[in-house]
Design a protein around this nucleic acid. Structure first.
Lengths: 192, 192
DNA sequence: ACTTGATTACACCGATCTGTGTAATTAATG
DNA sequence: CATTAATTACACAGATCGGTGTAATCAAGT
């Protein structure tokens, strides 16, 4: 039951916005009484927090080469953009909608952003990139930038643009990409 | 009077979110009657549209070298992030909050994003960049990415990370940056 | 002084919001 | 069968929402 409530809340919150969806709407959508919903979640705020916590999915660990994993992120992004229900990053949207004052929600959003940055960083470290921290941050900018742009433009190709930029940044850091050969001894050299 | 309403609505909408601010709140904040507000704006929706239209500021035209103008964007971003009231991109926030179905608002947001992309593109063309269209798109990703990241993290240094990434992208396209020397004949070579 | 237009106070509308109280109903367990 | 726990229907609370109707007030211009 709790999961049914959560998945319905997830769908409606993400699709229409948190403030735009009332608890009555959620209960009615499932076909349960409002009382039942409040028996599982003491307040809407806790339901919102649970919704965001449920969106906190770890990045998949795979055996593929790190560079492929990194660039594969943008392929998954593009598929996500093209899928029907895509409506931007739920964490960014929540902070944008609910404001910065709500610390509990902002903390979840920060934790998610940071977890993805660290995922990038670890892969970059495996690749021997010198400034893995900085480059990981830059990659997250491309990710969130393409998400924001797709949200307003509804243009999945933004993911590909981000991927191309990521390739350049990776190559500049000495990572071999797409069979390109790159040396990185003091002066990086990009061969396209 | 109309401007007073607009600037107050701007402040409250941007700071607290559009759905979170009622017309009564706006009128009370100014100290006018709700009737007066509705005499200037027939509905809240039109007030929202006017709010976004007012946020539509053209990028400044200056006589500085194109490369400096482009990179200066990120310096201005960083100052914006560090300023007290910064709360992300009002257009992205509006779309995130009001949903994609509201076409009139989404159109304003798209127009703004596109205007900034074209501003980048024109400067890149002045620099003789081959794929000015594509690179301009990539730069907007860095801009919007840093905005989104700063919104949740409250970390103005995201603008600097975006600037560093932009430098790499520019250099890779053969633009001379920071006194770096770059050739771009077939194979770009980056010297840091 | 007279007219015109803007603004005011204020009550009111129907709808919706989060949240609660309560008593009846259902389903599983012993 | 009896107990227990969950769920139900439903009314209701108090607040807020966007928006309107109306008559009084105010200020400026001719």
């Amino acid at each position: 039951m709790r999961e049914r409530i959560l998945e319905t809340a997830d769908l409606l919150f993400y699709q229409r916005g948190i403030r735009a969806v009332g608890v009555d709407t959620i209960a009615a959508e499932i076909g349960i009484s409002k009382r039942t919903l409040y028996n599982h979640f003491p307040s809407k705020d806790e339901l919102i927090a649970a919704y965001l916590a449920g969106r906190f999915t770890k990045a998949p660990r795979s055996g593929k080469p790190p560079a492929e994993q990194i660039l594969g992120t943008f392929d998954r992004l593009e598929r996500g953009f093209a899928s029907k229900g895509f409506r931007g990053c739920p964490f960014v949207n929540a902070v944008a909608e609910l404001g910065t004052e709500d610390q509990s929600i902002r903390k979840i959003a920060v934790a998610f952003k940071e977890s993805r940055r660290l995922w990038f960083r670890d892969l970059l470290q495996q690749l021997g990139v010198a400034d893995a921290e900085g480059l990981a941050t830059q990659l997250t900018l491309l990710v969130d930038g393409s998400i924001a742009q797709d949200l307003v433009r509804n243009d999945p190709s933004m993911a590909r643009a981000a991927k191309e930029a990521a390739k350049v940044l990776l190559a500049n850091a000495g990572v071999k990409v797409d069979g390109q050969n790159v040396r990185n001894e003091g002066n990086a050299r990009i061969i396209d």
